[in-house]
Structures are given as structure tokens and as C-alpha cells.
Nucleic acid binder design. Structure first.
Lengths: 158, 158
DNA sequence: TATATAAGTCAATATGGTTGATATAAATAG
DNA sequence: CTATTTATATCAACCATATTGACTTATATA
């Protein structure tokens, strides 16, 4: 039988830990983007286009869960900076297929590699047992995600 | 020697995991607060006041990293809802000491207990080894937090 | 040919943050 | 006792970012 109060304390500590760890994890991408005067949406566009090259504007809107008007500003920024290219689809020339330019891929990689390096460091510093445990717990948590697929845009990702 | 690409894949998966796990973790508090038409600031006020009862308004502003004008709306909401009480300090009657009312403590507990329950569940389901590993990794990550103490308000916490 | 769809844009509006100026009450310096 | 500083609280102007609605253009399809 575990002492209820000490159990609660442990969980409270875990809650704080989660928050500060997440903040550390997201700090560097934010800094890299903010340097260009860009925000979360730019980051998320780069992220989603990087992971699903050739997706359409409407698909991206669905992925991000924002209105098209909210997307177009950042999307245009990224196109004008030659980080995202939009090419008409062959079968249907109305739809624009979005993908990362080489420069866009470089930036996207720069951003996410800062996160990969951080993770790689802490995984290596704490041994594979800890890393595996972390993965198990996070997987279980992610499985509890109640969020709808076309996300309600209340709490933005990336 | 580890294959670089598979290593990157593992880290990419960890990045996604982190994001979805965090979203699952924060989903329920958001829902509970949104039901009252409230947002993150209300939550964070309840959280910080709950963990540091008797703190002053200026201290709270520093903890949150927002302007006093941005704080006062939500703070007034919470006072009018009798969730937060402000009592003049004995030594210096200018400063208001903020604390949770019984109702405020109840709500705060309701909010955070949804998170405690989620954590307790996944910790229990995955064994103490995994839980300990998670804690080690998250602690190491949190230690890398570069954020300044009076945070620049660019990337909001809680 | 008429209609529907994908993308892009303009306008009006809401929210939530900012800074600046000011008011009030209480503490403190001279 | 008076003057100044400090802690809190507002008011106003402004800005960024999101929303919805209406519309245009190009393309596809019935």
C-alpha cells in the first residue's frame, strides 16, 4: 500500500517536469523561427510539408486545423522566401502540390535537428533503459490523445 | 556503430511522440477551463497561486511573464468567481496576497487531478522501470531549459 | 454550357496581447 | 508634515493573429 500523499507529490513533480521538459524541447525551434520574425504556423507548415511532400493546400489546412485565410499569410512568406514551392498537380491543375525547396529542407532540418540533438544527448546520457522507459510512457500517453483529427485549433501543436 | 539513418528515424519518432503525448497531457485541463470560457492564463494563475499561496500580484506577474494589464482581466474573473482571494499583506497593506478559496482549490485540484490520473495510469500500466526512465529523461531535458526566468512571453507555458 | 471545386484575396470582427498614462492607497524619506 | 516612491488597478490606443463571409480566377466535370 502506497502512501497517497507521497504518491500525489510524485505525480505533481511529474507534471512540472513535463511542462519544463516540453518547454526546453520547443525552445530552440521557436528561437530559430523568431529570428526571421516567424511564428508557430511557419514552423508547422515546414514540418507538415516536410513529412508529407506534395500535399495540397486544402490538405495542409486540414492538417493544421486553421482557416485558409490564416494559412495564406505564412504560406506566402515561405513561398516568397523560396522555402516552399507550389506546383500544379498533373491530374488537376487547380490543386497546388506543396513541397520543400532545398533551402526549405535545409531550414526544416536545422530546426528539427536541434530537437534531435537534444533528444539524442539525453538518451545517450541516461542509458538505453531510461530511453526505452521514456518511449513506453510517452507512447502510452499519446494513445490517450482525445483530440479530433481536424484539430479544434484551441491548443496549437509544433 | 549505429546506423545514422535508423538513429534519425528513432529520434524523429520520439519528436512526434513528444508532441502527441504533450497534447494528450494538456487536453483535459483545456477542456475544463474552456467550458467556463476561460483560457490558459486563468489556468496558470490557479496553478501558480495554488503552488505558492500568498504570493503578491507583482510576483505572479513575474511568474507568468505577462504585463499587469494582461493579468488583470483573468485575475478579476477568478476573484469575481470567488476562486481567488486577495488579502492585504500585514506588513505592507499595499500588496495583495493571493490565495485559492476553497472553491478555487477544488477547481485547481479537479484540473490537475485529471493530469495526475493520466500520469498515474500510464506509470502503473508500464511498470516502475519505465516510470523511472521517463523521469530521468524528462529531468535531463528540463535541465536543458534555456528560458529566462522572467520569461520573454514569446512562448507561453502551462 | 452550367456548375462545382481549389486556391487566393479583401473586408469586418473578435481576442488577447502590448505600451503609455493615470489614479488611488499605503509606505517611507526628508 | 510633506514629498516621493511603490503596489495595485484602470483606461486608451495599438498590434498581431485568428475567425467568418463574400468574392475572383482558373480548372474540372456533369
Amino acid at each position: 500500500m502506497v502512501d497517497i500523499n507521497s504518491q500525489d507529490e510524485r505525480l505533481n513533480a511529474a507534471m512540472e517536469l513535463f511542462y519544463y521538459a516540453y518547454r526546453a524541447f520547443t525552445a530552440q525551434p521557436d528561437t530559430l523561427l523568431a529570428a526571421r520574425g516567424w511564428g508557430r504556423v511557419h514552423h508547422r507548415v515546414l514540418y507538415f510539408v516536410g513529412r508529407e511532400p506534395g500535399l495540397s493546400v486544402n490538405t495542409l489546412i486540414a492538417r493544421l486545423g486553421v482557416s485558409k485565410q490564416a494559412l495564406h499569410g505564412p504560406l506566402r512568406d515561405l513561398q516568397e522566401a523560396d522555402l516552399i514551392v507550389a506546383t500544379p498537380a498533373e491530374q488537376d491543375k487547380r490543386v497546388r502540390c506543396l513541397s520543400l525547396s532545398p533551402a526549405g529542407a535545409t531550414l526544416e532540418n536545422e530546426i528539427s535537428s536541434s530537437q534531435r540533438v537534444l533528444l539524442a544527448t539525453v538518451f545517450q546520457d541516461n542509458g538505453s533503459d531510461a530511453a526505452q522507459g521514456w518511449q513506453r510512457i510517452m507512447t502510452a500517453l499519446a494513445a490517450h490523445d482525445q483530440s479530433v483529427s481536424i484539430c479544434p485549433n484551441r491548443r496549437p501543436p509544433a
